[in-house]
Design a protein around this nucleic acid. Structure first.
Lengths: 162, 162
DNA sequence: ATATTAAGGATAATTTATATCCGTATGAAT
DNA sequence: ATTCATACGGATATAAATTATCCTTAATAT
């Protein structure tokens, strides 16, 4: 089991969009160049963010993406679920229902014990992601990156913003 | 992202093996019949459990599988990792390294902030699974299943055991 | 001997992930 | 008005992972 690369791309793109000057947009092309990603395919991830109302878009020569909310109102889980979907990572196919000793109506009493354990772990995963806001992530990145790189990166974003 | 069906199969099979009479083995064929699964493919999951030393096997007409340890010494995570692997569910491809403003030696200071957040969630997921022992799971199943079904299921297992 | 089993290699089919291409509508600049 | 750059969505193609089957080999009980 591995998360789609879109998850990684979307998180990095949101972190970059957080550094965008007020009212400006950043295009798919700029985001793809910045991260060295295939523009057309990255576009699909950004569309998913748009459909989840995490980013606003506009068309035309100065068009692109910007965050639709304050970074403190977006969680990492929001971003992950926007591109990966909200479906649980464990799918119960109810194989207990094949038990040759089953009576009629077996399994009618709710999800099986295995599914409950796996779903609890899934929820622990989501909970961990829900507890990190985009603002937290950006703060951590700012902490990691040397000040001069952080500054020139911000300038690069501003230069490419339309 | 979805876990392989082997995870579900392995968990249910281990729960069944927990009800096996002392010293006996249960074959792939019996486990496949019980759960309505393709025998040959289920066999791959059981081989993974064997390679992880969670089950013992023996050949011949009375051969099959049995648990290699007490149910309280096996965690759900052990079983999940045996068939799904221990690799993290988020793979960092270090796309920050493409930053056009990067200096030489950028990214040498350890994993990026995005990866750390995702890996922390992965660890929360594993931790949740690690905290459930096979004995706990079996106890929950026993609680769920009506007594008569539980008893006849145990009899079925004993009848098919070699 | 014979039958039954696990193990593992080879292969195929199916599904998902990754990636590209193209047409349309929109908005900005000239 | 015209031109250009953009997001969007559909269609298609390619690659990889998952699911599944088949077959051979070695071991073991009867």
């Amino acid at each position: 089991m591995i998360l789609r690369s879109h998850v990684e791309w979307a998180l990095h793109c949101c972190a970059i969009l957080a550094g965008l000057p007020e009212g400006k947009y950043l295009s798919t092309k700029a985001l793809a160049e910045f991260h060295g990603l295939p523009k057309e395919y990255l576009s699909k991830a950004l569309q998913a963010l748009s459909q989840a109302d995490l980013v606003d878009t506009t068309l035309g020569p100065t068009g692109g993406y910007r965050l639709a909310k304050p970074t403190s109102d977006i969680t990492v889980l929001d971003i992950v679920e926007a591109v990966e979907g909200k479906a649980r990572t464990f799918e119960c196919t109810n194989i207990r229902a094949a038990n040759p000793c089953r009576p009629a109506g077996f399994c009618d009493a709710g999800p099986c014990a295995v599914a409950r354990v796996m779903w609890a772990a899934d929820e622990a995963w989501r909970s961990s992601l829900r507890n990190v806001r985009l603002s937290d992530l950006v703060a951590t990145v700012a902490d990691d990156v040397p000040q001069d790189v952080w500054k020139s990166t911000g300038a690069w974003i501003a230069r490419r913003a339309g």
